[in-house]
């Protein structure tokens, strides 16, 4: 008898939880969790990257890389970046095992010396290859890396978006916060504003040319990062995305790092 009585009580308490108004923090986290859920299960991908660095005068400098990423369940992804241009860094390769809140494990392979160097991952805010992208901007984005706060709904270039503020939960970030415009239909980051340690707007990232792969995973074809304080910008173009190529841990280990080129 008692069990029968308990059941409706339990159901009632669930209802109460649902009725309790969702806080903006809970909504922000829910949006990030949903975006993460929609992108989970890709297993692995490879892609070609081109970065065009522009200074205020419009002078351009080009970086060409190839990326391999392996999804790791319940942790950050493993990724390998192989540099093709500029010519003096050709053959240099960068291996990163990212973690949600712990420090990432990173190794650099220097082809002239045939040397693998374990490097410190503490410098998250430093520029990647002299570009406007910091290391923390290109590393694996895990839900646990930030705390969230939903701000408002806003239409961006015709897309209905959530605007979510996220603050880094990891140490040594160059940012106090980021504002992320996430489109309501596909939960893709359309735009991110980065605020520096003095809480002033530092950079704006605009993601364009989204394409869907395996009928599920959306990837931007072009990312434009503009430094609002210096006028410098970097365009990162992604080409030849391939998903589920069958990469394994072996394809992202120190031995592969030395012969990746």
């Amino acid at each position: 008898m008692r069990r029968i009585l308990l059941l409706p009580l339990f159901t009632l308490s669930l209802l109460a939880a649902n009725l309790h108004a969702e806080t903006s923090q809970e909504k922000g986290l829910a949006i990030a969790t949903e975006a993460d859920r929609r992108d989970a299960g890709f297993e692995d991908f490879t892609a070609d990257m081109t970065m065009i660095l522009r200074n205020r005068q419009g002078d351009e400098s080009v970086r060409v890389m190839r990326a391999r990423t392996l999804e790791v369940k319940n942790d950050g992804d493993k990724s390998l970046l192989i540099f093709d241009e500029p010519a003096d860094v050709k053959g240099t390769a960068f291996l990163s095992y990212s973690h949600a809140t712990e420090a990432d494990d990173q190794w650099l392979y220097l082809p002239a010396l045939k040397r693998v160097k374990r490097i410190s991952s503490a410098n998250k805010s430093g520029p990647f290859m002299g570009s406007e992208f910091a290391y923390e901007d290109i590393s694996s984005q895990e839900v646990a890396k930030y705390t969230y706060n939903y701000l408002r709904d806003e239409t961006l270039d015709g897309n209905e978006c959530f605007v979510v503020e996220r603050r880094p939960a990891y140490e040594l970030s160059g940012y106090t916060k980021q504002l992320v415009w996430v489109d309501k239909q596909h939960y893709r980051p359309m735009k991110i504003e980065f605020y520096d340690r003095k809480d002033s707007l530092l950079k704006t990232l605009t993601n364009k040319d989204y394409q869907q792969y395996l009928d599920k995973y959306w990837r931007a074809g072009e990312m434009l990062m503009v430094n609002q304080q210096t006028g410098k910008s970097t365009t990162l173009t992604w080409k030849d995305y391939r998903f589920r190529t069958g990469l394994s841990d072996r394809d992202l280990d120190q031995n592969t790092l030395q012969r990746a080129r």
Partner: peptide
């Protein structure tokens, strides 16, 4: 030991 972003620049 690496001091990154010395004097608010990108220099390590």
């Amino acid at each position: 030991y690496t001091l990154s972003g010395l004097f608010n620049t990108a220099t390590d």
